[in-house]
């Protein structure tokens, strides 16, 4: 190869090299930003999804606690439809007592106040009434996720209460904390 051609090749190669270095520098910033954004987004999505399970669990425990209190109050008291209505309204309205009952259950297994307050801040207490069905002879209340307690009345008197769903209640059947998915660099 003659010297002139070799010179041209060297110049071309220098130009290619410089261009590659420029592209590399440009991509460096892009990669860094993509990596940070991608990681942060996926972490946030997972934490949101994960925390939502604890929020749903808290709310389910709120319904569960109210349902047990209602069953006990109705069975302890007058056992009438009127007593049921009064008890239900009083239990739902007493938000301090509801928080206390949930907090007591969480504390019983050593979950500290900071963790409880963190979940409570996001979950609050269930706003909707737990009364799902309200007929003269038949009433149903929610007692958590996929859990219903049934009260039957005859002429305003309690005939029976079916709280077998509460006795068999298992939150792990309806809620689950998922393992983190594989990270995707995108």
């Amino acid at each position: 190869m003659d010297k002139k051609k070799m010179k041209i090749l060297v110049v071309v190669e220098v130009v290619v090299l410089v261009a590659l270095i420029v592209v590399l520098m440009m991509l460096k910033g892009g990669y860094e930003e993509t990596a940070k954004r991608s990681s942060n987004e996926q972490v946030k999505n997972y934490l949101d999804k994960n925390t939502q399970v604890l929020v749903d669990q808290w709310r389910a425990v709120d319904q569960y606690s109210m349902a047990w209190k209602l069953v006990h109050t109705v069975l302890s008291g007058a056992k009438t439809e009127a007593a049921f209505n009064t008890s239900l309204a009083a239990i739902q309205a007493d938000k301090d007592a509801r928080f206390k009952q949930i907090s007591h259950l969480y504390s019983s297994v050593g979950i500290n106040a900071d963790v409880q307050n963190g979940i409570f801040k996001k979950a609050g207490l269930v706003e909707e009434s737990i009364l799902l069905k309200n007929e003269k002879t038949s009433k149903e209340v929610a007692c958590g996720q996929n859990c219903v307690v049934k009260f039957n009345f005859v002429k305003g008197k309690l005939k029976n209460v079916d709280y077998s769903a509460l006795i068999q209640y298992n939150l792990a059947n309806s809620l689950k904390i998922e393992k983190p998915a594989e990270f995707r660099f995108e």
Partner: peptide
């Protein structure tokens, strides 16, 4: 851990 502890608490509580 929190999720499992609460479910354990429910077992005794119910």
């Amino acid at each position: 851990m929190v999720f499992d502890l609460v479910n354990t608490a429910i077992e005794t509580n119910k």
